[in-house]
Design a protein around this nucleic acid. Structure first.
Lengths: 233, 233, 233, 233
DNA sequence: CATGAATGAGAATTCATTCAT
DNA sequence: AATGAATGAATTCTCATTCAT
């Protein structure tokens, strides 16, 4: 018997956002936080961490289960006690990480007052969280796209989640009178998300941040650009 | 002897933009234009076209040489007369396509007068060209990133090429007085490129354009957003 | 220490019919009959029953220890307290079952008077017993042959046991004057056994009995055929 | 590209007897008979022969593709150019062999006049053919039963093919007045087939023929038993 | 140049068996 | 005795690449 039931709610099987909790994800969240976390969870997390590290370094398709197992310090076969197959590792990671990341995004937005502050807060958390965990960032930005093992539908949902948050902010700003009413919201959403992704991608590829500071420091100037544009009044 | 010398200057071996001409690329450019083009070149192009189609459909790693050969109507072994290996096909494509695309981009920019027109022209051609050839767009946006067979250095160069064009435009705009002088140019470049990529990606994944029209139609509204931002004056 | 000494006398190691008693078999025989039977024996039997069920359904090689354990309601490891390995389960079953079946066969033969009655009784019990326990029948007819884990020598012995019984009957019939003296006894034995096996196999595969009744009902008509043949007078 | 289209009509995919010809089987038939047989066919046959030899020795599940490849003198991968997978080898063999064997059986029956002669001829060919190729006999008698990779439906069809031939003979005999009209034909068919199988199985397991001669020599005495039975008139 | 059959290294995955608890 | 997580050997199958024709 294996622990698969625990991960049952993987991307490819149950839809990404339909079930409320992944045990694995929960355990993962608890990483390092609870002394009473048992071995099984620890191992699930160890494998997940190792896999993301290896995927980030090698790319999903280049990475082998053996490499992941070695990195995690377990036998090859052990991986299959926790994950259905190689794709399932990535699925579980994306599923869990998406959930976690969006929880933080929502929080960041909820804790700010007006549209501009909300946007600044959202972008700030986005950049900070991704900078904090480069492996995650690499896998999220690069592998998620290509991984044909991930349902395109799920991919769309992840993006939609983000653009939905943005849409809320934009509409609020329009009500507040701080954001133009005469623009294409669908375009504006992509416009905002695109810049953030581009900045993260540049950092992922070059290791550098435009301007030389922290990734999160770009949130202010970026939101400034979003609002004022590049044009001279 | 095979034709490899011809492709020697592939991405992964000699750097993308260091040597002035790729015979293959040249042949490719000439596709359908010159009656005196010999069989070999035609076959080179057939394989390249077939490969991009298959890569776009299956993903680079899922695609097999056999599929490409079948699509191209040649034997598996024939591919190796024109390309060193599987990665080399993608490398050659990116190398050639980058060159071609940037030629068109430069032209688009050169044919316009002021910064705003240049930007509009650049984005317009970018969107139009990618929409015209979805397979190319898919491979460019998705596979290029993940394909570890492409040198990261080369990837950086491609992006730099684009942002260099943008930088020129931005500086010209600043001189013209149409673009703010008090902004971070490095950030602005990513800000511009990011939106274009995001719009293309959305189209690639969903098949839809925000707004419902043609991809190229977004150039105007997008540049408008770039200049004015989302803020209410 | 484990209980292995108990099963030491498995098919593959000590020969099937050389030692007088298998503890496991004895326990098995006692299944449900003795209140003082301890837990260990009950578990031994539970595993054996479960294994035969799973082997019958999946085939010996397709069946996994985990499936057997689950069916038996014990942990995977527990199986190895009672059986040396997977083959040993089958060996023990065949060993026990052969013994049990032949006890009943001998009894059936002993309780009848003349050769024809003996034969009818033997065939009747054979068919009835196999019909009563389809899993056993499947394993006996199908898996026993293919399972290379069973010593061919043992296989020969089982068959010989049966044909020895038949030989006794045939010789008695010849003495009694009811059975021809001018025939090849070795051939006649196979002739008799073959028909029974074929009828059981047909039932195992199709689930049907030629004629549509109970398997055991075929004993009479079959023995009639044995004696009279298919020829007209 | 591989040669699979050639074997398309495998047991498990298209039903056993629905399509008229297996190229592979045809080639196989021609083994050693036609000088112009090309390499591909020769290899297909080499692999098939090797596989049957290995399956007969090791059993289907114990046998590995590597063993088959080694026996055939080809690389492991080559096997997959000719067969979809391990089961497909067995399927193709059984499919081909069944066809061939039944052609010979039909011929044997057609060339004889009355029921008794037909039966004698059928049994004679059956025994002779199986004795001629022990590996085939082993695989046919033992592995075919157990191989869960073979559709049970197909198994039934093979058996039915044989019993259909027998039924024709029995009915003809009844018309001719040489065979009893008062017997259960379904039972009689199994009765006949069972004896043949038992004799072959005994020979497969012990290497011996009851009586000590050739397997085919048993046809006469056996048919004599069928007709006259074991009873003293 | 072109072919495509053959190769064999390499990867994912399974599962009998062990052993620390 | 019982457990079941962990192991890792073993196996199937894939596919980029080669090379004789």
């Amino acid at each position: 018997m294996n622990i698969h039931s625990m991960n049952e709610r993987s991307f490819s099987h149950c839809g990404l956002f339909t079930k409320p909790s992944i045990k694995g994800a929960v355990y993962y969240t608890l990483k390092g936080e609870k002394g009473e976390m048992d071995q099984g969870n620890a191992k699930y997390n160890r494998i997940l961490d190792a896999a993301i590290k290896v995927f980030a370094e090698q790319g999903f398709y280049q990475a082998t289960i053996s490499q992941v197992a070695k990195e995690a310090g377990v036998a090859d076969g052990t991986i299959y006690l926790y994950f259905k197959n190689k794709s399932d590792i990535l699925s579980n990671f994306l599923s869990y990480k998406t959930r976690m990341v969006f929880d933080r995004f929502r929080q960041a937005v909820d804790n700010a007052d007006n549209a501009e502050e909300k946007l600044k807060s959202l972008i700030g958390v986005h950049l900070a969280d991704f900078q904090k965990d480069r492996d995650m960032a690499v896998v999220f930005q690069r592998e998620a796209l290509l991984a044909r093992c991930i349902d395109e539908e799920d991919l769309r949902k992840i993006i939609k989640m983000y653009t939905d948050i943005l849409e809320d902010i934009l509409r609020q700003g329009q009500k507040e009178g701080t954001i133009r009413g005469d623009m294409h919201i669908g375009l504006a959403k992509r416009f905002i998300l695109g810049a953030v992704n581009e900045i993260i991608n540049t950092w992922v590829v070059t290791g550098k941040v435009a301007g030389g500071g922290e990734l999160a420091d770009m949130a202010g100037p970026l939101v400034d650009l979003y609002f004022k544009g590049i044009g001279k009044e």
